[in-house]
Structure formats: structure tokens, C-alpha cells
Amino acid sequence: MKARVHVTLKQGVLDPQGKAIANALHALGFDSVIGVRQGKFLELDLKDADTASAEKSMRSMCERLLANTVIEDYAFEVWK
């Protein structure tokens, strides 16, 4: 199985890096940019045999290590 995880800062948590990127985009003339939030993207190879077990392990991995749920949200997808 394969999995993809997106980790993003929760709404309301200051994102200094996203802000700097938005400023840089403005400097390049991309005036349509209202805001940028920077996050993380992870790809995993899993031994799990089925979707249910892969989802279960992904949720646990996200809660325990991949995201810090004090400041971050996560979303994942799994497929064969």
C-alpha cells in the first residue's frame, strides 16, 4: 500500500514562512496572492495488506509523530 500525508498549520497559528513566501510572490509581481500557508507532504510505502489497516496505522502515525496536533492538522490518503 502507498500513503500520502499532508501536514498543515492549524488555522490561526502564525505561519512566518508562509508569510515570507507570500511577500516574495508579491515582489515577483504575483499580485493575486492573498495568502500562503506552508506545510509538509510525506509519501509512505506500507506493508499493510488492506485499506482499513493502512488507514488505521496512518492515523496512529500522524497522531504520534508525523503531525504535532497542538499546532498542526493532517490529512492522508491510502491506495494500493
Binding site: 497559528v13 502564525l14 512566518p16 504535532n68 497542538v70
Partner: peptide, 17 residues
């Protein structure tokens, strides 16, 4: 300590980067 849950909250990138 915050990552281990022994203290609350989190430490993120400095505001000025």
C-alpha cells in the same frame, strides 16, 4: 519536552524567520 507532551504548547519558527 513539548513534543513529548511533558509541557503544553509548541515552539514554532521565530516570527522573523
Amino acid at each position: 519536552l513539548t513534543e513529548a507532551g511533558l509541557l503544553p504548547g509548541a515552539l514554532i519558527r521565530n516570527a522573523g524567520l
